[in-house]
Design a protein around this nucleic acid. Structure first.
Lengths: 171, 171
DNA sequence: GTCCATGCAAACCTTTTGCACTATA
DNA sequence: TATAGTGCAAAAGGTTTGCATGGAC
């Protein structure tokens, strides 16, 4: 296997170079494994779990330990090139922040688990307004809207509606 | 110890009765332990961890296994009387949804971990607008704004600012 | 008396860490 | 060659589960 990690055919994302730059700035070695993990993340527009990443590395013939994947993801998140998400599934997901709207938020389908991204221009203003009112210095936000995606609605899915038969407001 | 769980002195939250009603509706037994856990959650306006709850039970003389606490919290969440939160600390937190603004959101201080609640009337409209645009059926949302609370700013705390020296937008 | 909850400990799952070995710079 | 990274396996930490016992209805 070619030690440059990109054996000719698939064009390596130019974004990996940004990660290399970050590593050099921090005085950290640029290793094959770090580049391979970064390549998987930068090559996908999905919200990847660590298992997803490991699977893709394996099918690309790379054999990289989970510990290294976690350690590299930590660096990627620190570099701000990658965002970490927790959609309440019991594990984290990762998505790169390059060549896409930088501060988008997520619609999460309670039926199929699918994630759709959206961008609201008003949200930034709302964040700043709330922060101002509360004397808070806002750095970032996270908005997740849970419900049913279009196709699950079409398939007849219903929102789970457990809980008290009479709304709690009626105490 | 009195088997009614409320040995005279501290007034039991009337909200426990709602939980009892839920359990009966579901054909589930109303047990001492379930009432004790519910009492702790309904008596606090904080965002409690399972450890917090266990600690409070112990200091009240109750000796209830962690498994029972988890199982009861599951019921409380299902009943919609209690909301579950994950503020990225590696464990969950719980807060009751009674006698407070039903759909508030959270400001989370990156320095001290403190959580402040806020209510934005515009947010519900924004949620519905986004959902409409995307053909999504929204059920609920979760907005968290991360930053520095007033007192941590006063104490001179700075937002962590790692990452690339040059903003990624400048690729 | 039946059925379900409880408590304990073991199991689980994701993530982190220790350590001997290897690669980067 | 010095320094830091890798891989493996073990540990950690929160949460869940199996099973014998005990309580609710």
């Amino acid at each position: 296997m070619n030690s440059s990690m990109n054996s000719g055919a698939p064009p390596v994302s130019p974004f990996i170079r940004l990660f290399g730059r970050y590593l050099r700035e921090q005085g950290l070695p640029v290793t094959q494994q770090r580049e391979a993990v970064a390549d998987v993340v930068f090559s996908s527009d999905a919200h990847l779990s660590v298992d997803d990443i490991e699977r893709q590395l394996r099918s690309a013939g790379e054999r990289i330990g989970k510990a290294t994947i976690y350690r590299t993801l930590d660096l990627l998140v620190r570099s701000t090139l990658v965002a970490e998400h927790d959609f309440g599934e019991g594990f984290k997901r990762y998505e790169h922040r390059l060549s896409r709207q930088p501060d988008h938020d997520h619609l999460i389908c309670l039926e199929c688990g699918g994630v759709t991204e959206f961008k609201s221009t008003e949200l930034r203003g709302l964040q700043n307004q709330v922060a101002r009112e509360q004397g808070f210095r806002a750095s970032r936000h996270k908005l997740e809207i849970y419900g049913l995606c279009r196709s699950c609605q079409a398939a007849g899915a219903k929102l789970p509606d457990e809980g008290l038969t009479c709304p709690i407001e009626a105490v």
